[in-house]
Amino acid sequence: MKKPLILVTNDDGITAPGLRALIRYMKEIGKVVVVAPDSPQSGKGHAITIDNTLFSANITVDKEHGASEEYSCSGTPADCVKLALQELLNRKPDICVSGINHGSNSSINVIYSGTMSAAIEAGIEGIPAIGFSLCDYAWEADFKPSEEIIKKIVRKSLDQGIPKGVVLNVNIPKVEGKKIKGIKVCRQARANWKEKFDKRTSPAGKDYYWLTGEFELLDSGEDTDEWALANGYVSVVPTQFDLTAHHTIQQLNGWGL
């Protein structure tokens, strides 16, 4: 049988250790083509480039362990997927995997995540897609404990198929030498960021601002991604890109608009 074509992307940049690990894992499953940002794009959400030019280059980051084809892109993670599908790939990929992100994309973080937005962009185009994140922001994070679970989820997704209109948001706990307990399919926890701006003054006398904040978990449910991660499990949240609040349509129709 023909090997599946796997599009790999991320938001931390094409040289990020998380991406390099994901490439190695995916090479055991199929033919890998990488299209990833040429510089870090964390927190860009689903931004696309419409007021500037996009550049792409066919590059080699790691001759021994790299993909068969790798392209850097000057744009956002969503741009990377668009460019891959429209210009760089010679056929539609069988799956798109994004990550492995350095840091969590659980709960409300999915809104801001470039990692997940790349996967969602693929999902919009009808391609099965998964975003992978490790709850460790360190550049030297240990991705090895997540290897077998990532390969299992990708293989299952290729074999069983991801439901139409759904993208998987997979977060992996930082286990620090302990074994991951297992995988839990969860809902997104209710949470937000309590944010503030740290106002500072530059040497030139100009005011500038640095965004800071604390994560607030507002959900005590044991069926959430945050609970799973806190208890040593990988969380898998089926995420939809149809943002319609279907359950409120009847109520709004009652307004007599």
Rank of each mutant, 00 (worst) to 15 (best):
K206G: 02
L88R: 02
S220F: 15
G254T: 06
K63Q: 13
T115N: 13
L83Q: 08
S235Q: 06
F55T: 14
V236D: 04
A191L: 14
F55L: 14
G177I: 13
V32D: 05
Q86K: 12
K196P: 00
T201L: 12
E69G: 00
E214P: 03
K181C: 00
T9R: 08
I95V: 07
W139Q: 10
V81Y: 06
T115I: 12
G30P: 03
K92E: 10
V81A: 04
I23V: 15
E70P: 01
L168I: 07
Y208K: 04
E64S: 12
Y233I: 06
D223R: 05
K44E: 14
T239S: 13
A228G: 10
C80D: 10
W139N: 14
I172F: 01
L22G: 03
K152E: 13
A119T: 01
D223W: 09
P173H: 07
S98I: 03
F132K: 10
R155H: 08
G18F: 06
W210F: 14
K164F: 03
P37N: 00
S133G: 07
A228H: 06
T60K: 11
D159P: 06
K178F: 10
G103Q: 04
H246F: 14
G43E: 07
D142G: 01
A138I: 09
L168T: 06
A138Y: 11
S157R: 03
S107K: 03
Y208V: 09
V166L: 12
H247N: 14
P37F: 08
G131V: 01
D136Y: 08
S72V: 03
K151W: 01
V8K: 02
G45L: 07
S235L: 03
E69K: 14
N90G: 01
D62T: 10
A141F: 01
V61E: 12
A141D: 07
A191D: 15
K92T: 14
S98A: 15
Y208F: 15
L22V: 12
D223G: 10
C80G: 12
L7R: 05
H246I: 11
L89C: 01
Q188I: 15
V236W: 04
E125C: 07
S107L: 02
L158Q: 02
G232C: 09
L217C: 11
F132E: 03
L88M: 09
S74K: 05
W227H: 15
G30Q: 01
V97Y: 03
V166P: 07
T60L: 13
K144A: 11
T244D: 13
P40A: 07
L7I: 03
G177R: 08
L257W: 00
D142N: 13
T201R: 08
E64N: 15
C73E: 11
N231K: 10
N169D: 13
V8R: 02
E148F: 08
P17D: 12
S107Y: 05
P128C: 01
P77Y: 10
G232L: 05
K2C: 02
S202G: 11
T212N: 10
T76K: 08
G103N: 05
N171D: 06
G177V: 04
I59P: 09
I108V: 10
K184C: 05
V61H: 04
L134Q: 04
T53V: 14
F241Q: 03
D94K: 02
N101K: 14
M1Y: 09
R155F: 02
Q188W: 02
P77H: 11
I153M: 09
A119R: 06
L19I: 10
A84I: 08
F241T: 05
N253E: 12
V34F: 04
K184D: 11
C73S: 13
R190M: 14
